[in-house]
Amino acid sequence: MTPLDEVRSAWASLAPTLNAADESTLVELRSRFVGKKGEIPGLMRHLGSLPPEEKPAYGSAVQALRQEVEGTLDRLQVELRSRALAQRLESERLDLSLDGDGADAGTLHPLLALRDEILDLFTGMGFDVADAPEIDTEWFNFSALNVPDDHPARDMQDTFFLSREPGQEAVVLRTHTSNYQIHALRDRKPPFRLLHCGQVYRCDADATHAPMFCQVEGLVLDRGITFANLKATLFTMVRALYGPQAVLRFRPSFFPFTEPSAEMDVDCRSVGLDRDGWMEIGGCGMVHPKVLENGGLDASEFQGFAFGFGLDRMAMLRHGIKEIALLTNGDMRFLRQFRGLA
């Protein structure tokens, strides 16, 4: 037996055990056969002692054996690693049907989300948005708006009064956002388009009325603003809110701070409600000359319109909220429903 045959048969005798070999056995075999001092490189030492005509054949035979050994070991190593990886991956299997961390969504309040929408709508129509006080004097809340104390129009709104010192002017929780009109008239010069949205208070709470609710107030003033302009603006608003099919009507009514005054009603079915008839959504009218004067403006030079409406019922209808108290009691079960409000 030549040394080459010996190495070859040694390698061949290992064949049945190779498939079961682990990583360290493979390293060992690699070093034994093809390592720097391994058996196959060792065979090349015999090359010098061979006759020249045999040298090429011998060299090729050793090289072939080397390739076979290396090829087999490489293949086994790849197979071994891929099995190990498969095993590891299997052991790392997770149930991805479970919630991830931090996936619990927070929510915005449905009324305040609607408020955002309304502000955007009017900003888009060129209205400037501003804040106003919720506590005000009787004069700003009533008298300046042409609601004198000795007039029954005062009774239209049940007013919360703040405790006060004797001799001090009566201070109220504003009963409507219209107090904003007077503050705006004093702060700004027309022409303007203004919008304010905030909380107002009335002491006639019952199952369907909360003592605090949210109103929107709009005021547009310039030379030559007309009732026709009021109608076009509010038609636009209603259609933007409820869609182009919404039907709006204006009905004569009375507000001391507008003349002419109108109530806005929408056709229930046209806004997606499952009932016949009209639903009152708000009031509007041409700003009363006395209000302009109380705001320090010349009523013969400027005219304009004002409008106001409540958001609570709008939000309740939109989301099918049945109980008004839910809007303010902080119930987590209620609040957490309103995911996805922009």
Binding site: T123, G126, V129, P191, R193, D222, F227, A232, P252, P260
Partner: peptide, 24 residues
């Protein structure tokens, strides 16, 4: 106005100069 009927009165958009409006 109320006797003519508000719904029978015309509707017309107000005209205003262009202004850069953003929320406060």
């Amino acid at each position: 106005a109320r006797l003519v009927g508000y719904d029978n009165l015309p509707t017309a958009f107000p005209t205003f100069p262009v202004s850069a409006v953003r929320l406060p």
